[in-house]
Design a protein around this nucleic acid. Structure first.
Length: 521
DNA sequence: CGCAGAGTTGAGTCG
DNA sequence: TCGACTCAACTCTGC
């Protein structure tokens, strides 16, 4: 029996390594490639750079589908409202999509699946967003997510390398498949315009990282060609403040699924073949395993994007301080390194991983003592590669709330950037108001004598803000506050309900708490 | 159970 | 310029 099939693109905006799309083409007479602009995911709350990236990715996808005599149908609305109409109108018999582990997506997909069942539509989903089936990683670890990278490494060692990516469909795959569409469809299901996504009136910077699978594969090729660079890659050795990115900037493409993580993995493997190379956690493979690490945490740990209710997260008495938060968000903390990073983030939608460390530490445990959840929201808005699991996981890491516990290691908003950019060229690029400051004062302009400030044409307190905190003092105080938060956790876990239930354990270790949650479900 | 060692990416000082 | 050491001190793992 030939099917009428919808392949639903959500993430996974690509044709290569798309097993759900291939499944759609099996015994298929009519294929409808669909993307739904969801009010929750694609409204104006999401940053302008992300929306522009999405348009690029959809255009590219449509273009590739047209080469296969198909096209992309973009619909508007809630999936649970949209699908029943489509099922009826198109006489759909099969729905395929890529599995997505985010709580919002799981909930949505469950609703859509039950609607499909009511319409006698067969549903097929495939895992291709992550290297592995995340559930398998947890199974291999006794049903709980690994809390250390080492453990994850041991697990994936047992699982073997990730699956090899599969090819994009060719014209031969499409020879019995039609995508019915009339002129009317063109108007109804077109790619969103910048105006539709509210970008027309906004001042957008240069598009440094255009969305789309073709651009992703081009970018991948470009980096994979540099054999020595790939083999020597060590993340901590790359610079957070180089004038052009010191890493691949493939992350936005992986987030949107323009690039398959498994394709990236195996292309790196090809380069490594027979050569000496770096290893996880610092290598390029290692970076993809970090992604897997946080994905596993996000699946196995309840309330992963929150402090309260999150069993692995240290409970901290963060301050509510809208002024500080706004200063951080709007790049006016008075610390040029921090403000330059936040400017790059807002303008370009991407900052280096270590730059994220610097600003995240500054917002939370280092200086401003503001909850990592606030930072998480702002990153989600501004980062092209804002990924639910990675954003939550990394914010917990940086704020020493989970996974990382050496809270006494604090980044200096002055010293850290100097290591890789003594002259402050990065600061000058993103904060032109400071461009005439001599290197001696570029990281701490408030220390420059009045004459130097005059010569630079920038008076601190007038043209550029005074630092909002005194880092030396406030960071010391904050280390003590972290110490108290950690001490409180140890005593709290001694009072855990497990003990009351008569289990002979003095404490429920953090490691065991997620397991308990999972079993309850 | 207790303890040693490790932990992608700290800063500052000294030689 | 770079490595070793100190600062003060966390959790998780593995033995």
């Amino acid at each position: 029996m030939a099917h009428v099939c919808i392949h639903w693109f959500r993430k996974g905006l690509r044709l290569h390594d798309n097993p759900a799309l291939i499944a759609a083409l099996k015994d298929c007479k009519e294929l409808y490639p669909v993307f739904i602009l969801e009010p929750y995911l694609h409204n104006t709350q999401v940053g302008i750079n992300r929306r522009r990236f999405l348009i690029g990715a959809l255009k590219d996808l449509d273009c590739s589908l047209r080469k296969l005599n198909s096209r992309l149908f973009v619909l508007r609305g809630k999936p649970e409202d949209v699908f029943p109409k489509l099922f009826k109108e198109w006489n759909v018999t099969k729905l395929t999509y890529e599995y997505d582990t985010e709580p919002y997506s799981l909930n949505r997909d469950e609703k859509v699946t039950s609607l499909a069942r009511k319409h006698a539509v067969e549903v097929i989903y495939k895992i291709s967003h992550t290297l592995y089936n995340i559930e398998r990683i947890m199974e291999e670890n006794g049903g709980k997510p690994p809390l250390t990278y080492k453990r994850l490494q041991a697990i994936v060692q047992k699982l073997g390398p990730p699956k090899k990516p599969i090819s994009a469909p060719h014209l031969e795959n499409m020879k019995d498949v039609k995508t019915p569409c009339s002129k009317k469809f063109e108007e109804k299901y077109g790619i969103p315009t910048p105006e539709e996504l509210g970008l027309e009136s906004t001042s957008l910077g240069e598009e440094l990282f255009p969305g789309g699978e073709q651009e992703a594969l081009r970018r991948l090729d470009e980096h994979v060609k540099k054999t020595a660079w790939v083999c020597c890659f060590e993340k901590p050795q790359t610079s957070p403040n180089s004038l052009s990115p010191s890493t691949t900037v493939l992350s936005p493409y992986i987030t949107f699924g323009c690039l398959s993580a498994r394709t990236f993995w195996w292309r790196i493997t090809e380069v490594y073949q027979g050569r000496k190379h770096s290893n996880p956690p610092v290598s390029l493979h290692g970076q993809l395993l970090w992604r897997e690490f946080f994905y596993t945490g996000s699946v196995g740990i309840n309330d992963f994007n929150k402090m309260e209710g999150n069993p692995v997260c240290i409970q901290v008495d963060w301050d509510t301080n809208p002024e500080y938060l706004a200063a951080w968000r709007e790049a006016r903390t008075g610390f040029p390194f921090i403000d330059a990073i936040m400017t790059q983030l807002r303008q370009e939608g991407w900052i280096h991983h270590l730059a994220r460390h610097a600003v995240a530490c500054f917002l939370t445990r280092g200086d401003l003592w503001i909850s990592w959840e606030e930072g998480q929201k702002i990153f989600e808005d501004l980062l092209l590669d804002g990924d639910w699991a990675l954003n939550a996981g990394n914010w917990q890491w940086l704020s020493a709330s989970a996974f990382f516990h050496q809270f006494f290691r604090v980044y200096s908003p002055i010293a850290f950037g100097k290591k890789t950019d003594k002259n402050g060229d990065y600061i000058k690029k993103y904060l032109p108001v400071l461009k005439k400051f001599p290197p001696k004062y570029i990281y701490e302009p408030w220390k420059a004598p009045r004459s130097v400030q005059h010569a630079a044409g920038c008076i601190v307190g007038k043209d550029y803000p005074h630092p909002i905190v005194q880092h030396e003092q406030v960071s010391k105080k904050n280390i003590q506050r972290m110490k108290e938060a950690y001490a409180k956790r140890s005593s709290n876990s001694n009072e855990s309900p497990i003990k009351e239930q008569g289990v002979k354990r003095k404490a429920l270790s953090v490691y065991e708490m997620p397991q308990k949650k999972i079993r309850k479900e």
